[in-house]
Nucleic acid binder design. Structure first.
Length: 931
RNA sequence: GCGGGGGUAGCCGAGCUGGACAAAGGCGCAGGACUUAAGAUCCUGUUCCGUAGGGAUACGAGGGUUCGAAUCCCUCCCCCCGCACCA
């Protein structure tokens, strides 16, 4: 028989499935199963890592079809957001790196001579999005995914915009769309917010926004020196200010006050506060020696010079707490020595193990000057110790005797209320964008948010989660935590592709906020396309999704046929809710929680999602896949490099959902051999005749029993999303059974047995390796395996007794082998002695008793010394109790045993020169080997 | 820091509602069969000891609970992931 050409059959069956529209979801009387995976973002090609989630998804969808559900598995494309726009801009600007990358991307799909032309078209974001959307859908078809493509859409289409507007109106009506201030990492040069991806090294060394407290110190002329701090509670211990004499400072108008900060800080302030105007510059040195008044107790304190003050960190002014800050302590020591100034530290925190913390840690670490890099470490140590263990002392007024950890925020709020302090934001470390521009913190003054804090909303969210199924299960608890943690989230921005924010011009709805309930779109997308966009009003969607209003009225209003309206509503009502969403854990704390919360807010309970399954990511040869490492394999190359079914099998079998899949070339090779062996096994059996029941021998029955048992188990595992176990069972374990069988029987007979189970076997495997199964199925049947339902398994063949007998035989053979090995004997005859009847009787009688009672009970039944020996022996044996005619089984397999050991076998003969007989225990015969 | 997940034989990786676990399966390695040979395939072995199917030691380290622990509890060490406006 000619070997199957995998590439050929992939293409063939994909075409046939398509032509016969096997996967188009149509309303029917059957139970529906609406299954979704996240739509891909179309900024580039997908790789095998992305493919895992979609592949597992397709396996689930196909399995549900086998179970008899009317499955809808749709797909769309995510286009909204900034990345695609940024790519188009970069290409338009001719940025080399980006151009080179996209040249490679295009080359994955296109001939070399078309690359330049296409690349040129990528100056338009729309073209980038469309190109990759088209290619990704081809990739998906080539992976054999059973998707209903009629319903595809992308997130910049007018009808989608209308849908998103509707969603936001619903949320707005609930009062959760709000405007407010928001600090964010920002680049002045780029005039835009910067995310982790935009920051140099941002993926490994995260940059976060830190709120500092900016404390005001009054100068003689009425203006304020502003010192930023992370430890506002230490204000009670301030002894002086530090300023960098070499740096430039400026006076700025802040509201109706005048502040003095470093030049750099003034620029930052301009992006953080509304009324900031720079007045005039001043050298740092001009402030040295002046006094300022601290506003808590009204003490006069001096401004002193310090080289450790960085004008580009905070405000460029630092207030000094030498008792508790190592930097301040060391700087103060310097000033004392050089300028002869006398200032005593003020201790305000009591903490066990320290008298003057800053002094002692510097001495302990042997730090003597301001340039010592270990000052940072000393500061961290003190900070932690004091934060968790320190208590403010009686110098701290109403905050005395409270632990720092409990009082810090209160002090901060009090200072702000008293107008002694303001807020200043700083990045957690100095950072630049990938383009090399400085990253600062800007405060967006009128950012739009979704406010997830309302109690009613969280309650609904928890209720929804509680009613859902999660796999792996632990994510359910995790999701509850995420809902609690969720607070305010910006939902609109000024840049990017997407839907216009309906409540203020110039804003675009942010792209995760527009991907929350889009599954609803799938149910009606193909029908919506036939309507004019103008008809897609709020009242239209209210009718379709929420059943508000009535068709005839709406029909007039929208000028759309009432039947059409009803038809659309029916489609939604039939398919919704989303029965299962399959995705990956990184989505939990963003997309998935929005998905759930928005459903909870907008839809009635019977339309809430039912289940979420998640699979981990994929790595390659032990390493994360990333474009920068150059170790990605495009999904588009899978067919050519490995074959689609092999890839699918690898995804299914290599790891459970909760585990990362490691794509290892070597493993793909060995899996290929396995798969080939399985295919060959099936092909071998196509032309033979199945065995009929009358012909079956013990070992035939054994194999059938094993195979049917495995089939049954596999279906159970599938139902529980344990796809890996199902796959291993039907590929590896079943093949091991076959191998064992061949040792006992012959290959030709094996073919006939396999022929008897081949239909069921193929059906169970078909979700994982659909092309191969379809191909073989068609050699036996006219129909498509892809739309079969699970057959009633022939449970009658699952036969415990037959399997137990074989198990017994195997253990007997193992024991004999063990003896031969240890005793190094070449056998001339092997004597097997099965347990006598009295032993069986006792065995039965005491099997359910606890060990400690066994001997006593047995003695009651049979008072003999040999009883004790036997029970002890039997307790050591680890076999489960089961009834078995031992002599008959051995007698039946005598020939096989003789062949196996190349000598005669004696069963229960009287000859017993070494007295072995007495060691016989039920299910564990005694053995004597003569050599 | 906060929250979550882990550490199993040379490697990958199951088991982890306590008992048949010297620990599935795969890979690797060694020996054998087949072959002119290689490859593929199949068989056997792969902690140590043992001339009778047995015993000892093992599942990050240490301690505990139990007749019994890879599995439960405590302490410690180490690794990975998320922490928001980003798809």
């Amino acid at each position: 028989m000619a070997a199957i050409n995998f590439k050929e059959i992939e293409a063939k069956w994909q075409r046939r499935w398509d032509e016969d529209k096997l996967f188009d979801g149509k309303i029917s009387a059957k139970d529906k199963f609406f299954f979704t995976v996240p739509y891909p973002y179309t900024s580039g090609p997908l790789h095998i890592g992305h493919g895992r989630t979609y592949t597992i998804g397709d396996i689930i969808a196909r399995f549900k079809r086998l179970q008899g559900y009317n499955v809808l598995f749709p797909m769309a494309f995510h286009v909204t957001g900034t990345p695609i726009l940024a790519i188009a801009d970069s290409i338009a600007k001719g940025e080399e790196k980006v151009v080179a990358r996209f040249r490679d991307y295009i080359a994955i799909y296109e001939d070399a001579d078309k690359v330049d032309k296409l690349l040129n078209s990528f100056r338009s974001a729309e073209n980038v999005a469309n190109f990759f959307a088209a290619r990704i859908s081809e990739d998906f078809k080539r992976m054999g995914y059973s998707i209903d493509w009629r319903r595809k859409f992308n997130t910049t289409e007018p009808m989608y915009n209308k849908f998103i507007e509707w969603q936001f109106k619903k949320l707005y009506d609930k009062g959760v769309i709000k405007k407010g201030k928001y600090p964010i990492a920002y680049s002045i040069e780029d005039d835009s917010a910067v995310g982790e991806d935009d920051i140099e090294g941002g993926d490994t060394d995260k940059v976060s926004v830190i709120e500092h407290t900016a404390i005001k110190f009054k100068l003689a002329d009425g203006s304020y020196l502003i010192a930023a701090t992370l430890r506002p509670e230490t204000i009670f211990g301030v002894t002086n200010l530090w300023i960098n004499p070499a740096a430039s400072y400026v006076k700025v108008k802040a509201g109706n006050e005048t502040w003095v900060v470093s030049k750099e800080a003034a620029e930052k302030l301009g992006y953080q506060k509304e009324e900031i105007a720079v007045l005039e510059g001043a050298a740092g040195s001009s402030f040295v020696g002046k006094n300022v008044k601290e506003l808590v107790e009204g003490r006069e304190i001096p401004v002193l010079p310090a080289s450790f003050v960085d004008e580009d960190v905070g405000t460029g002014v630092v207030y000094s707490v030498p008792a508790h800050a190592p930097y301040d302590y060391i700087a103060l020591e310097d000033v004392k020595r050089l300028e002869g100034v006398e200032i005593e530290p003020i201790k305000i925190i009591d903490i066990g193990g320290y008298e003057l913390p800053a002094k002692e840690i510097c001495e302990r670490m042997n730090i003597a000057n301001q340039e010592d890099e270990r000052l940072e470490e000393a500061t961290q140590t003190i900070y932690k110790d004091e934060f968790y263990r320190g208590v403010l002392n009686d110098k701290c007024g109403k905050f005395a005797n409270v632990k720092i950890a409990d009082i810090k925020d209160e002090v901060k709020d009090w200072l702000k209320r008293e107008n002694i302090a303001d807020v200043f934001y700083e990045t957690s470390r100095k950072a630049v964008t990938r383009g090399g521009d400085k990253v600062i913190v800007a405060v967006l003054q009128d950012q739009w948010f979704i406010d997830y804090t309302p109690e009613w909303w969280k309650e609904l969210g928890h209720k929804l989660v509680e009613g859902m199924t999660f796999y792996p299960e632990r994510y359910k608890t995790y999701m509850h935590d995420i809902i609690d943690w969720l607070a305010f989230r910006p939902c609109a921005r000024k840049r990017g592709l997407g839907t216009q924010f309906p409540f203020e011009k110039g804003w675009i709805i942010e792209s995760l906020s527009d991907s929350t309930i889009y599954m609803a779109m799938y149910t009606i997308a193909h029908l919506l396309r036939q309507l004019p966009v103008d008809a897609l009003t709020e009242r239209f969607f209210d009718f379709v999704f929420l059943d508000i209003g009535d068709a005839p009225k709406l029909s007039k209003e929208l000028n759309v046929d009432a039947d059409v309206l009803n038809r659309i509503q029916d489609e939604f009502t039939y398919w919704y809710p989303n029965d299962l969403r399959h995705t990956a854990p990184p989505h939990l704390s963003n997309h998935l929680v929005f998905f759930l919360m928005h459903h909870a807010a907008i839809f009635p309970e019977n339309m809430w999602p039912r289940a979420i399954t998640l699979n981990e990511l994929m790595i390659r040869e032990g390493k994360k896949m990333s474009k920068s490492k150059g170790n990605v394999i495009p999904l588009a190359d899978v067919s050519e490099l490995y074959g689609v079914d092999l890839y699918r099998l690898y995804c299914a079998i290599n790891a459970d959902f909760a585990t990362v899949v490691n794509w290892r070339e070597q493993d793909t090779e060995s899996l290929r051999k396995r798969l080939n062996a399985v295919v060959e096994l099936f092909e071998d059996s196509i032309d033979v005749e199945g065995l009929n029941e009358a012909e079956l021998t013990h070992i035939d029955r054994w194999l059938l029993s094993r195979l049917y048992r495995r089939l049954r188990e596999s279906v159970e595992r599938f139902e529980a999303f344990r796809i890996r176990e199902a796959g291993i069972n039907m590929i590896f374990n079943a093949m091991n059974d076959i191998r064992y069988y061949e040792q006992r029987q012959d290959k030709d007979r094996r073919k006939r047995i396999v022929r008897s189970v081949i239909d069921e076997w193929l059906i169970v495997l078909s979700p994982i390796i659909p092309h191969i199964c379809e191909e073989i199925w068609h050699k036996l049947h006219e129909s498509f395996i892809s739309v079969q339902t699970l057959p009633e398994l022939n449970e009658a063949f699952i036969d415990d007794r037959v399997e137990r007998e074989e198990e017994y035989l195997v253990s007997l053979i193992d024991d004999i082998k063990e003896i031969l090995k240890v005793a190094r004997i070449k056998p001339t005859k092997i004597y097997v002695y099965t347990a006598e009847d009295w032993k069986w009787e006792l065995f039965r009688a005491i099997k359910d008793l606890p060990d400690k009672d066994k001997i006593r009970e047995a003695m009651k039944l049979r008072k003999d010394k040999s009883t004790v020996d036997f029970v002890k022996q039997a307790m050591k044996s680890k076999r489960d109790y089961f009834e078995l005619g031992e002599p008959e089984v051995i007698e039946r397999e005598k020939e096989y045993l003789a062949k196996e050991f190349g000598c005669e076998i004696g069963i229960n003969e009287d000859y017993d020169p070494k007295g072995k007989k007495r060691f016989a225990v039920p299910l564990k015969p005694a053995i004597f080997v003569e050599g």
